[in-house]
Amino acid sequence: MKYVIMFTFDPELDAKVPADRMQGLYGRAYQWYAEHAAQIADGGVQLQPVETATTVKYGESGTVLVDGPFSEAKEVVGGFSIIDVPDLDAAIALVRTWPFLELPGWGVEIRPILTIGSQPEE
C-alpha cells in the first residue's frame, strides 16, 4: 500500500535547536532515505520555510488570497514522501525510525493514498 508521510514541526521549537545538532539530524535523515530506499516510492520534497507560503481560499464573492499557510496551527508541514509498504503497521514501524522525531514538536502524519477500489463508500 502507498502512503504519503507528511513531516510536521514547530518552527519556533526548531529555532532553539543548536545548529550542530540540526546538522547531525539532517545527515541521519539523508542516511534514513538511503537505508529505506526499498520502501520509499517517491522521496518527495522538502518545502521552503512556512513564511514563503501563499494560500488561495474559497470566498463567497470569489477566491481570497492569504499570505501564509492554510492552517493557523503552530505546527507546519515541512515536506513529504511517498512510501510503499504492506500495511499500516509497517508504515508506523518505518516512520518511528525517522531521526527528527527526537525533537519536540515534530510529527509525521501517515495518510493512505486513494486508489481505485479504496474510495470511501459515502
Binding site: M1, Y3, P86, D87, L88, D89, A91, I110, P112, S118, P120, E121
Partner: peptide
C-alpha cells in the same frame, strides 16, 4: 471500520515486538 479498511490496518495479532 472505514479507517481500518482504507488505511491498511490488518485484522491480525501483531508480531513479537509489538
Amino acid at each position: 471500520k472505514r479507517k481500518i479498511g482504507a488505511t491498511g490496518i490488518l485484522l491480525r495479532i501483531p508480531e513479537a515486538t509489538d
